[in-house]
Structures are given as structure tokens and as C-alpha cells.
């Protein structure tokens, strides 16, 4: 697991290198937009916390409105 994690991290760093080298701020912000929530999810996964997906939340909302099978 650690080996695969390190491989993923290395590829990600390789991907980040041209972004930082060419100072592509927009690319960096977009990358962080996905990495930060990803890290939060990873933390939750490590703690064993399962979060309700938005589909389940909307489904419950629709059910309360009577829109359900």
C-alpha cells in the first residue's frame, strides 16, 4: 500500500513540476481544489468515517416531498 502510495505521489510531483516551473497559478489552484477535499476524505477514510453521499441526501429530501418509488 505504501509502495503504491509513494508511486502515486511521485507521479503527482512529476505532474506538478511543470506547473510550478511555468508558474501556472490557475492550474495550481484547480489542482488544489481537488487535492484538499481529497486529503479531507483520506483523513475521514483513515478514521473509518463513511459520509452520506449527496445522492442519498437528495434521495431523502425527495422522499420527504413524496417523490419516490
Amino acid at each position: 500500500m505504501i509502495v503504491i502510495g509513494v508511486i502515486y505521489l511521485l507521479i503527482m510531483i512529476m505532474d506538478f513540476y511543470p506547473i510550478i516551473k511555468h508558474k501556472k497559478v490557475k492550474h495550481l489552484i484547480i489542482n488544489l481544489m481537488f487535492i484538499i477535499p481529497g486529503l479531507i476524505f483520506l483523513f475521514l477514510a483513515a478514521k473509518g468515517i463513511i459520509v452520506k453521499s449527496w445522492i442519498t441526501i437528495i434521495w431523502e429530501f425527495l422522499k420527504s416531498l413524496g417523490i419516490s418509488y
Binding site: 503527482m12 501556472k24 492550474h27 484547480i30 489542482n31 488544489l32 481544489m33 481537488f34 487535492i35 481529497g38
Partner: peptide, 8 residues
Amino acid sequence: NIVLSVGF
């Protein structure tokens, strides 16, 4: 450049 972060 955004493929891996979306993947993560």
C-alpha cells in the same frame, strides 16, 4: 496537468 489531482 489536472488528471492526477482529479483522480486523487
